[in-house]
Write a protein that binds this DNA or RNA. Structure first.
Length: 207
DNA sequence: GCCCAGGTGGGTA
DNA sequence: TACCCACATGGG
């Protein structure tokens, strides 16, 4: 939870759901609404009426869908782990990942963000930026699946949560520029370790 | 006005 | 499996 902007693990999870296909600035408004209404705990989300929850998170977009997703997660947490995140995160990574993927509204990226940023599990998070940057460097194509890309990073990088955390942060923070502009690739590119020696990709890339 | 953002689920062929 | 679409707000 070093880079992810949140105060508690549960807040990370809420943010991971609210940020689905949504700009973070919009998520912040929704989180602040939840905070001022003291709804940033599993118990509070469980008890709040769905319509009220939806109204509060409206700025994050898809608010009716996301209200259902937040409800689905706390139902899962209560049912499987008695409402305890500590107990949930004590489950081995792969087993927990499988369980999270059964929850309505939790897909691969959301599951992995929860595992890494809320639970400190060693899982590399792949997102839209990661895919675009990889494709642009010729390291993947559109047919590469989420898990293929994730496993590539986990295979090539030291297996450390701290490093995955930082690496994904670098991709998100800088990816925005690389995706839209035709900037040369600089030495600070997080994918630099993957680029073949002598590759023209190291100095320049054409769109 | 138009396009997009730190995705996911459901329906159809 | 592989598309297609709905979901919705706020900023550039």
């Amino acid at each position: 939870m070093n880079w992810w902007p949140a105060r508690t693990p549960f807040e990370v999870i809420v943010g991971a759901i609210l940020t689905q296909n949504t700009a973070w600035s919009n998520v912040e408004r929704a989180i602040e609404k939840l905070r001022s209404n003291r709804l940033l705990t599993p118990g509070a989300i469980e008890r709040v009426p769905p319509a009220q929850l939806a109204r509060l998170i409206r700025p994050s977009g898809y608010f009716r869908q996301k209200a259902k997703k937040l409800k689905a997660f706390v139902r899962f947490l209560n049912g499987e782990f008695g409402g305890s995140l500590k107990r949930m995160f004590a489950v081995p990574t792969n087993e927990l990942r499988s369980k999270l993927l059964t929850v309505h509204g939790i897909g691969p990226e959301t599951a992995d963000s929860i595992l890494l940023y809320a639970g400190n599990h060693r899982i590399f998070v792949v997102d839209a930026y990661t895919r675009r940057i990889l494709a642009r460097h010729g390291l993947s194509d559109d047919r590469s699946s989420y898990d293929e890309i994730r496993e590539m990073f986990e295979r090539e990088l030291p297996h450390e949560a701290e490093l995955y955390n930082e690496y994904h942060a670098l991709i998100v923070n800088t990816g925005k520029n690389w995706c839209r502009n035709k900037n040369p690739i600089c030495s600070e590119c997080p994918l630099e370790p993957f680029l073949p020696q002598n590759s023209e990709l190291r100095t320049e890339v054409s769109s």
